[in-house]
Nucleic acid binder design. Sequence first.
DNA 1: GAGTAGATCCTCT
DNA 2: GAGGATCTACTCA
Length: 188
Amino acid sequence: MLQIAKELLGKILVTRFDGQLTSGRIVEVEAYNGVIDKAAHSFGGRRTNRNEVMYADGGVAYVYLCYGIHHLFNVVTHSKDTPHAILIRALEPVKGIDEMLYRVRKLKLDNSLTRGPGNLSKALGIFTKHNGLSLRSKDLYIGDDGFEYAKKEIAASPRIGVDYAGDDALLPYRFYVKGNPYVSGKIK
DNA sequence: GAGTAGATCCTCT
DNA sequence: GAGGATCTACTCA
């Protein structure tokens, strides 16, 4: 599971909504470990309408609205009935930067465009209606251009914003590219 | 520059 | 009816 999280770093996340193609290279992820992770929605086998998608086969998107403001984009990674997911926290913009800037009402590119899960979802045009969408569809997919980060460029740390999860909040399930300006800097 | 409070709404109890 | 996988802005030093 953690292996998959690391492999996602360096991949290209592509969306094509409203005829606008936008994409970015994944530079920060967090792993959520199914039923034994207090920080995961699926902890203890909880299964509701909201997180039903986590129990699907891997390769679909799990999109969820948090704090009424932020859309969080996850990749379901495991097989049916095993609710593992990887939260995409940050991207480095690749294509469609003008379109992304328009979506977040910015005039010029800066590091905050795709830093943090709320911002990156907004920049890519991802909303809750994309929940459950396959990542092999033509409008939303993860590409691989052969690029990968060296092991020494990848660092691990505790996850962000999951203080309520007790001991599990300290697990080093967050992976990011060292020195990349799009990685969110807040470490609690 | 650092720390804190407020925003804001869907989902589950 | 309460709280959450967050971000931003504003205050204070």
